[in-house]
């Protein structure tokens, strides 16, 4: 009885791309992203369409880097934070690539990687799959919080939805950076109902996934160069460390959180750090993938974290369910 999927045929990362908005460009990773738009508009009239354009941008950039046309892609897996995932369908419909829309809140990027590995491991597998996830601060503020011009203060545990997107193109293969195993997360309700403390809402799910992973695989955190989490932020990262310590697990210095890395919290007023589907995707594509490609890291565990909720569920006082799927990425040599 196991929950980990070891992929018979590893999924090889063929190409990657990232794009961000102004705040993310001004952060410590700013120069690493493939594209940024100072206006956050990405040439679109509304914030919702801007997020769609952001998705199309990263997809095009990843295709360009691989020297491929979109017709070479057999399946597009995409998701975002907007109601009914309209950013993905609105921005990516023009390509005419077969599409599965995904929703895992901010964990969608790793959810997409897991599904892509499945498609590439089918009895009659697809040859190339693209995973695109995006988030846009303005669209998220409008949908989940308050009008953009509304003047208010936020609590220190609140997170900042990243205006960011990332895309990976994958194919069957066992050379270079490959996805070799993965595991779906369990939905964990820690009882937290405060949407301004999503780190605390997601940390129990993250701890559950990591504990299950290390117990089942028999591996230890030191077998990895980095254990990357999507958007726990400072608050969620510290809670995760406490929760794991209670289970006798320590990530020591191997833990890296995309939400913490994306901004300079001393200079940028993002409170506990970044969040959103695009946070994990853009930081993975801009920072960690190049590190793996350059051989600076050989083996990483990528775990995105999602807070499953809607504005209505939060207003009704419902608790926020967390989810944390995991994928193992490692450099394979032929």
């Amino acid at each position: 009885m196991g929950h980990i999927w070891e992929f018979e045929a590893p999924a090889r990362v063929l190409s990657h791309a990232s794009a961000v908005g102004r705040e993310e460009f001004l952060g410590p990773l700013g120069s690493l992203f493939d594209y940024h738009d100072e206006s956050d508009r990405f040439g679109a009239k509304t914030w919702e369409k801007a997020e769609g354009a952001l998705g199309a941008t990263v997809f095009n950039l990843a295709l360009g880097r691989a020297g491929l046309s979109h017709t070479a892609i057999d399946l597009l897996l995409a998701g975002d934070l907007q109601n009914q995932c309209v950013a993905s369908s609105g921005g990516l419909s023009v390509f005419g690539v077969p599409y599965l829309g995904l929703y895992g809140a901010c964990s969608t990027f790793v959810e997409g990687l897991l599904v892509s590995a499945l498609a590439l491991n089918a009895a009659q597998p697809l040859s190339r799959v693209a995973v695109v996830t995006t988030s846009h601060n303005c669209a998220a503020e409008r949908q989940f919080r308050l009008p953009l011009e509304y003047g208010g203060q936020r609590t220190p545990t609140a997170q900042w939805t990243a205006t960011a997107g990332g895309c990976l193109l994958l194919e069957r293969g066992r050379q270079g950076v490959c996805l070799t195993a993965g595991m779906a997360g369990r939905m964990v309700d820690g009882g937290v109902s405060d949407a301004a403390n999503m780190g605390a809402a997601m940390a129990p799910a993250a701890a559950d996934s990591l504990v299950r992973w290390f117990r089942e695989s028999g591996e230890s955190p030191t077998d990895y160069d980095a254990i990357i989490t999507g958007d726990l932020g400072q608050e969620g990262s510290e809670i995760l460390s406490d929760l794991l310590a209670m289970k006798g697990l320590s990530l020591s210095d191997r833990h890296r959180d995309c939400g913490v890395l994306l901004y300079d919290r001393a200079r940028q007023d993002v409170h506990a750090g970044g969040s959103g589907c695009g946070c994990c995707a853009s930081v993975t594509a801009a920072l960690f993938l190049p590190q793996l490609l350059r051989g600076e890291m050989r083996r990483v565990l990528l775990m995105a974290t999602g807070a499953l909720m809607s504005p209505t569920s939060v207003q009704q006082g419902g608790s926020i369910v967390g989810i944390a799927p995991i994928v193992r990425m490692e450099v394979l040599e032929k």
């Binding site: 203060q153 220190p156 820690g190 009882g191 937290v192 209670m246």
Partner: peptide
Amino acid sequence: MTDKQAYLQYVNRRAARSPVLRNC
């Protein structure tokens, strides 16, 4: 810290407070 209530207490205890004096 096995049940939700204990976790919530822990979360609320550790959550940084807004800088009340500065805000006031």
